[in-house]
Design a protein around this nucleic acid. Structure first.
Length: 590
RNA sequence: GGUCUCAUAGUUCAAUGGAUAGAAUAGGAGUUUCCUAAACUCUAGAUCCAAGUUCGAUUCUUGGUGAGACCA
């Protein structure tokens, strides 16, 4: 348990015994004490003042006195300033934390909660390579899964491959028409990029055909439907659904190329899944649920035979769930998949890591599932994240402003190689060690850049300014870890019993380290990896301030040296652990 | 047109209704005979506008302005 939790317990108990009425920790606020005041944690008294009709000073004194008297191991002193009760945590408590946990690499991990959570992320289309937006999605999903695991949940990572539909047929048609049998192998191209090129080619050809038709007086919308390549794509979709062998073979072949490409990228960025669903397997799911909805009176049929749900009483629109020709819409598929997931894994919760452009879709999805009284319904949670934007706005495939994931990673790794070579600190590394280090730093910078921002918010990436390696960045934290490891390689720890007084910078560091548990809990509750990114940075920064003032190797006494070595050890462990939850490795040297 | 997001230093990001709104970067000034200067220290710089609720509002409510997304 973290001190913040222990403190709340103590305060609530003291309030109950002092004033003989019911209190919860929602009755008051606890903050970290601002550095300009004496103390570690602060109780904000105003809400209590109102409830108890006492003056802030009287209330603060009574509570402060009671706390120090009842919990001498916990609280050493208090002071009251303008309605804020500042509590000083006893030094023995901090020393105890250090003593118990400095060598504990699993510090922060929570006991098993007995709940199972499914998290779906990545979910690529199999017609083009991944871009920067996918990276944010992958990093978020992977990290959220790790954080939830650390918080004591059993986590199932899933991915849905959007492997069918008109967009897939487009790249297939273009390949058939223009490739002359070329393959990723024959052209030396990564499979996902290879297929993506034909998807782009389709768009180019379509545009030209449409322009020609418009020039001949055809209406633009009609032209887009009637253009020869589009006709071919539509026909291919029909053939695919009919299971025409030649089409299925081509589809399998091209998808296999894409998956081979994705595998390389996933391996590089460390994304993995316990289970992959394929839209080609699941797109027919949910059809029987339409019947169920009609029987239950949740859905209704219009005159043309299409089936709808009326959500106007919930402040939304009417939403179609089956077209008049009997075909399913995305919504229906998603309901079906939600049911299948639940049947297969019986998760308490099912998280979808999907961009905020689909907020409405998921609101409706959950609502329909609830109205159908599906057991999966209440567990549905849309982890909605903001788009990665360029200074010019959104990335657009057809405008060629998409930042390719593989290119981005390569560039980051290149920059990390350049900087490492400039500094020349690891000249004795083997070629393999260097390759690994460049990957660690380059990907660390990229992942940290994308994860440090609150997932809910859109974020900006400016391709003209390379991602930083100084300040609030991954490499800064990695560097701090490497420096600590360097100390630990040189100095020996023993089992001295610690009794010395903590200097301010030593205590600041320990206070920050102790907040790791609370940070994991909060990050898990909010599905928010950025809290851990901010935390890891705070730890590194606090350590660096300490390090620049106090020497470990030449400490004032043998006991101080041992104290600081343990601080170093615990800091290194927590940095490695917190960065690990973000999917970022930390090197021992850099 | 309807619904939903968002608006904080020059820039990119923080701040469960609480104390003098934090960082980073860019700018200015310093620190290396001593554990890795990818570091440290100091300095200057911001809550879109207007009402309201509150002891207290960047945070909550309403209206406006601006940007974006979704639904047709």
């Amino acid at each position: 348990m973290s001190i913040a939790t222990i403190l709340r317990d103590a305060v609530t108990k003291s309030l109950v015994s002092l004033y003989q009425q019911a209190f919860t920790d929602a009755d008051y606020q606890v903050n970290q004490t601002k550095p300009e005041f004496e103390g570690d944690y602060t109780i904000v008294l105003f809400s209590l003042v109102k409830k108890l009709k006492k003056s802030p000073d009287a209330l603060g004194n009574e509570l402060g006195t009671a706390l120090v008297a009842q919990y001498p191991q916990l609280f050493s002193a208090y002071n009251i300033i303008k309605g804020f009760l500042n509590l000083s945590i006893a030094q023995v408590y901090w020393l105890e934390v250090l003593q118990q946990h400095y060598a504990d690499a699993g510090y922060g991990r929570q006991p098993v909660k007995g709940k199972r959570i499914m998290i779906e992320y990545s979910s690529p289309n199999t017609n083009k390579p991944l871009h920067l937006g996918h990276l944010r999605n992958n990093f978020l999903g992977w990290s959220a899964a790790s954080i939830l695991t650390a918080a004591g949940y059993e986590v199932i990572k899933t991915c849905i491959a959007n492997d069918r539909g008109i967009h897939i047929c487009k790249s297939m048609v273009a390949w058939q028409l223009f490739a002359n049998g070329a393959t990723p192998e024959s052209t030396g191209t990564k499979g996902d990029h290879f297929v993506g090129d034909y998807y782009v080619l389709f768009g180019t050809v379509l545009k030209k055909q449409v322009a020609d038709m418009v020039a001949q007086g055809v209406d633009k919308e009609a032209a887009e439907k009637q253009a020869p390549v589009m006709q071919l794509a539509q026909q291919m979709l029909v053939d695919w659904e009919a299971g025409v062998p030649a089409v299925i073979d081509l589809w399998k072949k091209m998808n296999a190329w894409v998956y081979a490409g994705f595998d390389v990228t996933y391996k590089r960025i460390g994304s993995d899944f316990d289970k992959t669903y394929y839209e080609s397997d699941t797109y027919l799911l949910g059809k029987d649920l339409v019947e169920l909805g009609l029987t239950k009176g949740v859905f209704f049929k219009k005159d043309d035979g299409s089936v709808w749900i009326d959500l106007t009483t919930d402040g939304l629109d009417e939403k179609i769930v089956r077209r008049k020709d009997g075909t399913a819409v995305y919504m229906t598929q998603d309901i079906g998949l939600a049911v299948r997931k639940y049947e297969e894994y019986k998760c308490n919760e099912s998280i979808y890591v999907v961009g905020n452009e689909q907020d409405y879709h998921f609101k409706v999805l959950k609502l329909i599932c609830q109205k159908l009284q599906l057991p999966a319904a209440d567990g549905i949670f849309h982890l909605s994240y903001g788009m990665v934007e360029l200074p010019s706005g959104r990335m657009k495939t057809r405008e060629g402003t998409v930042v390719d994931a593989d290119d981005m990673i390569d560039e980051m790794v290149n920059v990390s190689r350049q900087k490492t070579e400039e500094l020349g600190k690891v000249k004795d590394f083997t070629a393999d060690e260097l390759t690994e280090l460049y990957d660690t730093i380059g990907l660390g910078a990229l992942k940290f850049f994308l994860l440090r921002v609150d997932p809910k918010k859109k974020m900006l990436f400016n391709p003209d300014e390379s991602i930083d390696f100084h300040g609030f960045t991954g490499p800064f934290i990695q560097y701090t870890h490497a420096r600590i490891k360097s100390i630990l390689r040189k100095e020996l720890m023993d089992d001295t019993v610690l009794e010395s007084d903590l200097l301010p910078l030593e205590k600041d560091l320990l206070v920050t380290l102790e907040q790791y548990i609370g940070t994991i809990e909060q990050a898990a509750a909010e599905y928010n990896p950025s809290l851990l990114a901010n935390y890891a940075y705070a730890v590194a920064k606090t350590f660096n301030s300490f390090y620049s003032v106090h020497s470990v190797a030449n400490a004032e006494s043998a006991e101080k040296k041992q104290l600081r070595l343990r601080l170093c050890q615990m800091t290194a462990n927590i940095i490695a652990s917190a960065m690990g939850l973000l999917g970022i490795k930390v090197p021992d040297r850099m």
